[in-house]
Simulated assay, not measured.
Amino acid sequence: MALDIYFLYLGVVAVFFATPPDTSQLLIISNSIRHGLRRSVYTAAGDLSANCVQMVAAAFGLAAIIATSATAFHLIKWFGVAYLAWIGLQLILAKEDATGRTTRASGTPARLFQQGFVTSMANLFAVVFFGALFPQFINPASPVVPQLFVLGLTYLVIDGVILLLWGWLGIRAARALRRRSLGLVNKICGGLMIAAAGLLAGKDLQPHS
């Protein structure tokens, strides 16, 4: 891959991420506020793992199938919407005990990974996005697999860094929130999850997100 093409790809990906927080980013902000940045890394890992699956699906030409299968797309999307909304409602309705602690245990690494993976996988638009993005920067005269690897790895690194930056911002917010009440923290985090569900509900297969 020519260096100028690679730099152009970096610019396109940077523009794509220069937007307000999306579904996965709202999730990691919420988990960072509640559990800290170290634990929210598991959420980022789940999100990036789902991206890997979506990239492989795009590479095998499944993007076109997904784009023409509205029923499957909407079933998976609305499952993700319900999943996020359920998490949000659980947080909002969580009770505090006499010490001000919430009765729900902190998320385990497996649960946080699951949240990141399911939330990202529910957005099948990503498969279509990768299927449309990568071919624009691939030279068909050169081996395709190494080029896909470079493009995919670059995207994952940028995405991972941005997710952790959003998580760090969540930590900054948590310092102020925890001075008040863990119940307030839960309600704010629950609101973020419901907002994420709303963003996912608005996703479709049109490349405008």
Score class of each variant (00 low, 15 high):
residue 64 A to G: 13
residue 21 P to Q: 11
residue 36 G to K: 03
residue 17 F to R: 03
residue 86 W to R: 12
residue 48 L to T: 14
residue 82 A to G: 08
residue 27 L to S: 10
residue 83 Y to P: 02
residue 35 H to Y: 05
residue 86 W to K: 09
residue 86 W to S: 14
residue 30 S to Q: 00
residue 72 A to T: 10
residue 72 A to Q: 13
residue 37 L to Q: 09
residue 55 M to E: 07
residue 44 A to F: 07
residue 65 I to Q: 13
residue 30 S to E: 00
residue 14 A to P: 10
residue 37 L to F: 09
residue 15 V to E: 12
residue 16 F to R: 14
residue 40 S to D: 01
residue 29 I to G: 01
residue 70 A to F: 09
residue 28 I to A: 01
residue 66 I to V: 09
residue 21 P to G: 03
residue 71 T to R: 15
residue 18 A to H: 02
residue 18 A to Q: 04
residue 19 T to R: 11
residue 54 Q to T: 07
residue 64 A to Q: 15
residue 13 V to H: 00
residue 47 D to S: 15
residue 60 F to A: 04
residue 44 A to I: 02
residue 41 V to Y: 13
residue 49 S to D: 09
residue 80 G to Y: 01
residue 61 G to Q: 01
residue 85 A to P: 05
residue 25 Q to D: 05
residue 29 I to N: 00
residue 55 M to W: 04
residue 81 V to Y: 02
residue 75 L to E: 03
residue 69 S to F: 06
residue 54 Q to E: 10
residue 62 L to R: 00
residue 63 A to Q: 02
residue 55 M to K: 07
residue 47 D to Y: 14
residue 59 A to Q: 07
residue 69 S to K: 08
residue 56 V to I: 15
residue 51 N to A: 08
residue 60 F to W: 11
residue 17 F to W: 07
residue 56 V to T: 14
residue 43 T to Y: 07
residue 66 I to G: 01
residue 84 L to A: 02
residue 25 Q to A: 11
residue 78 W to I: 00
residue 71 T to P: 09
residue 82 A to Y: 05
residue 22 D to V: 07
residue 78 W to G: 02
residue 87 I to E: 11
residue 30 S to N: 02
residue 70 A to V: 13
residue 68 T to S: 15
residue 43 T to I: 03
residue 44 A to L: 14
residue 58 A to T: 00
residue 50 A to M: 04
residue 68 T to A: 15
residue 75 L to F: 15
residue 43 T to E: 05
residue 87 I to W: 13
residue 61 G to L: 02
residue 74 H to P: 04
residue 28 I to M: 02
residue 83 Y to H: 04
residue 86 W to E: 08
residue 26 L to Q: 00
residue 22 D to I: 12
residue 76 I to N: 08
residue 14 A to W: 08
residue 58 A to W: 05
residue 60 F to L: 14
residue 47 D to R: 07
residue 36 G to W: 03
residue 24 S to D: 13
residue 18 A to K: 06
residue 32 S to Y: 02
residue 25 Q to Y: 13
residue 53 V to D: 07
residue 55 M to V: 00
residue 84 L to S: 01
residue 15 V to K: 15
residue 83 Y to W: 06
residue 64 A to I: 15
residue 48 L to M: 10
residue 24 S to H: 07
residue 80 G to Q: 05
residue 41 V to H: 03
residue 26 L to G: 03
residue 61 G to R: 01
residue 39 R to G: 08
residue 71 T to H: 14
residue 58 A to I: 00
residue 52 C to N: 11
residue 61 G to N: 06
residue 73 F to N: 12
residue 48 L to E: 08
residue 27 L to T: 09
residue 73 F to T: 10
residue 35 H to G: 14
residue 51 N to Q: 11
residue 24 S to E: 11
residue 60 F to R: 08
residue 57 A to P: 06
residue 88 G to I: 02
residue 17 F to G: 04
residue 59 A to D: 05
residue 34 R to F: 02
residue 84 L to C: 04
residue 70 A to I: 08
residue 75 L to Q: 08
residue 63 A to G: 10
residue 29 I to S: 00
residue 30 S to I: 04
residue 44 A to C: 12
residue 77 K to D: 04
residue 55 M to Q: 10
residue 24 S to G: 12
residue 76 I to D: 09
residue 52 C to A: 11
residue 20 P to L: 08
residue 51 N to F: 07
residue 37 L to A: 10
residue 58 A to Y: 03
residue 56 V to W: 10
residue 50 A to L: 01
